[in-house]
């Protein structure tokens, strides 16, 4: 895949940059954080967080299990030696999974070909709701460690870069690979999960959180919009019933420091591989007042 050199400057920035920074902000300082493989946006976001607001976090690389590496660049594959550079310690595979299963990992990033309103995700198969009895239209790659980790990790940050397609946020996943707040088999507490489940869902249109109590506990709720997106666009693209927070706001623009760190850590632009060409053309700039213009 050819990657265009990004054209953003100090005064302007692109949607892919802003999106990754929004992902980074879901990490709280001091958290033990992990991303799955094949997740360049989440991977870059973790390195941005580590170098800006979350310097005390323990960053565990998704396929090398290196602790707090200082990679010279983010490569297009998750299992590359560049992602171990500068790490004093590299966990074994089983060391990471044991820690996550016993509850010592605070946050993980998860995505999916389909995501429903309770944060269940499908990375297994699309086009047959009784797979494997019926063959699927599209066999996806598979879930890696998600269906174990989604139960026990402290919080999940979900993301998709294909919300606008109308196929990503769905009423029901054809297949639930990784469990969100509620599945047909029951709620998280009923199923005995110790982790908190999805906390944020970041899309290229806006940012959702999940209700923490009441009848709608575990249901996604739109909290923030990117400023070039209107509510009707989100509603049309969302397969589940769109619930909107009363204090709906605009996503906070990136700081100069966040942009500088992002551009330094991702010179190859691997994050861009997650976006359609149209989304990559979305650029923003700061006006004289410091507000973002689209």
């Amino acid at each position: 895949m050819e990657r265009a050199v990004h054209v953003s400057t100090a005064d302007s920035f692109s949607l892919d940059e802003w999106f990754v920074i929004a992902l980074a902000r879901t990490i709280r300082d001091g958290e033990v954080t992990f991303h799955g493989f094949g997740s360049p946006c989440a991977q870059v976001a973790m390195h941005v967080a580590k170098r800006t607001h979350a310097r005390r976090m323990l960053l565990v690389e998704g396929a090398t299990y290196a602790c707090n590496p200082d990679p010279p660049f983010i490569p297009p594959t998750g299992n590359d030696a560049s992602l171990q550079r500068g790490a004093a310690y590299r966990m074994r595979f089983e060391e990471f999974f044991d820690a996550a299963i016993r509850g010592d990992v605070d946050r993980m990033f998860l995505s999916g070909g389909q995501i429903d309103g309770y944060g269940n995700t499908n990375v297994t198969a699309i086009g047959a709701d009784d797979y494997p009895a019926t063959l699927p239209k599209v066999k996806l790659g598979g879930g890696g460690g998600g269906c174990n980790l989604a139960a026990t990790i402290g919080h999940l940050t979900l993301w998709t870069t294909r919300h606008r397609s109308g196929r990503a946020l769905v009423q029901h996943c054809d297949f639930i690979t990784d469990m969100g707040h509620r599945t047909p088999a029951g709620s998280r507490s009923g199923l005995g999960y110790s982790g908190g489940g999805p906390q944020w869902l970041v899309t290229e249109l806006g940012i959702f959180d999940f209700d923490t109590e009441g009848d709608t506990q575990g249901a996604a709720r739109l909290r923030q919009l990117f400023p070039d997106v209107d509510l009707e666009t989100v509603r049309a693209a969302t397969g589940f019933e769109l619930r909107v927070a009363p204090d709906l706001s605009s996503v906070r623009p990136p700081s100069a420091a966040e942009l500088a760190v992002l551009r330094g850590i991702d010179p190859l632009g691997v994050r861009r591989s997650e976006f359609s060409a149209a989304e990559l053309r979305r650029t923003f700039s700061y006006s004289a007042s410091g507000r973002c213009q689209c």
């Binding site: 895949m1 493989f37 094949g38 997740s39 360049p40 297009p76 594959t77 998750g78 198969a125 063959l135 699927p136 239209k137 599209v138 066999k139 996806l140 790659g141 598979g142 879930g143 890696g144 691997v270 591989s273 997650e274």
Partner: peptide
């Protein structure tokens, strides 16, 4: 998981055989 990550995408022969 069988695939080529975000960079090169789904595993074509695996996908075809599974479908």
């Amino acid at each position: 998981y069988v695939g080529f990550e975000q960079d090169l995408g789904l595993a074509p022969a695996f996908r075809r055989a599974a479908e």
